[in-house]
Write a protein that binds this DNA or RNA. Structure first.
Lengths: 257, 257
DNA sequence: CCTTGACCCTGACGTAACGTCAGGCTCGAA
DNA sequence: TTCGAGCCTGACGTTACGTCAGGGTCAAGG
C-alpha cells in the first residue's frame, strides 16, 4: 500500500542528489525541524515527493539570503507575511549590493593605479582606503549647496545607485576622450555642438534640471583647491583645463541657439 | 622619553574608538597575530600611531572581503602578491554580485507577480523558483546555435553583466510599449522607421553584429513551442504577435533603404 | 590606608550552516 | 554468514568576533 510507484519514497542520499543538496544538509534541516521526513522501523529517513516540494522552497528562500530560522517561520505560518518578508529581504540585498559595488570599485581603481606607475603595497593600500572613504564622504559636497537644495540632493541620492553611477562615469569618460580629439575644431562647428549637447545632457542627468543644484556644482568646481585628496584623484580626468575651456566656449554657443 | 606628545600611546578602548572598531576586535587581531601592540608592565595593551596605519589597512582589506588569515599573510610578506590577490578578490566579488543580482531580480519579479493578481504563498514561491532556475538555464539556448557560434556567445556572456542585462531588458520593454502605440501607423512612415532603427540597434547589441548568432536567434524564436516554462513567462512581453508582425514589415522596409 | 569606579585582562561559550570524522547499526547480495 | 554500501547520531571545526564571568590595575576621594 505504501510504496506503489506513484508516491515513491527516497532514502537520504538518493533524495539529496535529486534535490541537489548534501546529505548533511538534510540531517541539519531535520534537526532544525525544517523538513522532517518519515522514518523506517530502523530509523532510516524516508522522503516523499511533497518533501521535495518543500525542500525546493527552502532552497529558493535560502538563495534569496534568508536564514533557516526565518524560512522556518515563513513556511510554518503559511500566511500573508511572505510578500512583506520578500520586500524587506530585497532591501537587505540591495544594501549588500551597494557595499559590494563599493568594494569592487575600490579594487578596480587600485588596479588602474597599479597599471599606470608601479606603486608599493603601502601606497596601493592607501589608495584603496582613500577610495573607500571617499565614497561615503560625498557628504562634504553638500557644503556647496544652499540649504533647500540639499533636500533635493538627498532625494536624488536614493536613485543614484552604484551601477547608475558607474554607467554615468563611463559616459563622462567617453565624452571627455572624444572632446580631446576635437580640441582643434571650431567650437561652433557641428562636431563640437554635438559634444556640447551630450555634455549638457549629462549635466542635466546629474542636476536633474534644477538650477540651484547646478549653481552648487559650479561653486564646487570653482573651489577645486579645497577638495579632499581622494576626490581630487578620482576627478582627475575631468580636470584637464583645455578640455574644460573648449567646452565652455562650445556650450556658450550651444546655449545661444 | 617614551610618552612625549608626538608618539602618543593609546589604550585599548581609546584606540578602538579612534579607529572605529570594537575592543574585542582588537583582542581578536592580537590573538591572531595580526596586530600586536606593546604592553605595559601590568599587561595592558598600548597602541601607537603605526599600529593605527596597520589597522586601517586591515579594515580596508576586510572591507574588500578578504579573510583575516589572508590579510595576515598579505601584510606579512610585503610583496608583489597584493595586486594578484586583489585581482582574484575582485573576481570573487563579481561572482557574488551576479548571485546577488539574480536574487534581487527574482524577488522583484515575484513582487510584480503579486501586484498583478493575488497569488498564494505556494504560487509565489513557485514563481521565485522558476525565475531562479530560468536564470541558469540560458544554456538550453545554445542548442539553437551552430557549434562555432557557441564559443562567441560564451565570450559575450562574460560582458553580459546583470546590470547591463537589466538595462537592455528595460530598453526592450520601453520600445515594445512604444511600438504598441504606433501599430496603426504606416510601417514605412517616419515613426515606424525610427522604431525599426532602435529595434535593430538593440538586436545588434545582443548579436554583436554576428550573422550566425542572429540566425540562431531566429531559430530560437521560431521554436517557441519548445521553450521552457520559466523562460516563456519572462518573455511574454516580447511575444505579442501583432507587434512582431508590424515590426517585421517596418524592418523589411528599413533594410531596403 | 582603604574604597570606589572606570578600565584592563584572559578564558570559555555562543553564533550560522553546515563539513568532517568517529563509532556503531542495517540491509541486500553473494 | 559475511561483506560492502549506506544509514544513524554525536562531537568538534569553521569565521569573526559578541557576550559574559571572574579577577587584576589605577587614579581619585574619604
Amino acid at each position: 500500500m505504501r510504496n506503489n510507484g506513484a508516491d515513491r519514497m527516497y532514502r537520504t542520499q538518493e533524495f539529496a542528489e535529486l534535490a541537489g543538496v548534501t546529505v548533511r544538509a538534510l540531517h541539519h534541516y531535520d534537526r532544525l525541524g525544517l523538513l522532517k521526513p518519515g522514518r523506517t522501523g530502523a530509523g532510516y529517513r524516508l522522503y516523499c515527493v511533497r518533501d521535495l516540494e518543500r525542500l525546493e522552497q527552502i532552497v529558493a528562500l535560502k538563495f534569496l539570503g534568508l536564514s533557516l530560522t526565518q524560512i522556518k517561520t515563513l513556511l510554518e505560518r503559511e500566511t500573508i507575511e511572505l510578500p512583506e518578508a520578500l520586500r524587506m529581504q530585497r532591501q537587505v540585498l540591495e544594501g549588500r549590493r551597494r557595499l559590494l559595488d563599493r568594494a569592487i570599485r575600490a579594487i578596480r581603481e587600485a588596479e588602474s593605479a597599479v597599471k599606470s606607475g608601479q606603486q608599493t603595497d603601502a601606497a596601493l593600500l592607501k589608495k584603496i582606503i582613500e577610495v573607500i572613504e571617499m565614497q561615503d564622504n560625498t557628504d562634504w559636497m553638500l557644503n556647496y549647496h544652499a540649504e533647500d537644495a540639499r533636500a533635493k540632493i538627498e532625494a536624488r541620492r536614493q536613485e543614484w545607485t552604484p551601477e547608475l553611477q558607474e554607467r554615468t562615469s563611463k559616459q563622462w569618460a567617453d565624452l571627455m576622450a572624444e572632446v580631446e580629439t576635437a580640441l582643434g575644431e571650431d567650437p561652433a562647428g557641428e562636431r563640437a555642438q554635438a559634444l556640447a549637447a551630450r555634455w549638457m545632457k549629462l549635466v542635466e542627468g546629474f542636476t536633474g534640471g534644477d538650477p540651484e543644484i547646478a549653481a552648487g556644482v559650479r561653486r564646487l568646481y570653482a573651489d577645486q583647491a579645497n577638495w579632499p585628496a581622494g576626490f581630487q584623484q578620482q576627478a582627475k580626468p575631468f580636470l584637464k583645463p583645455e578640455v574644460w575651456r573648449y567646452m565652455e566656449k562650445a556650450i556658450a554657443i550651444w546655449k545661444g541657439k
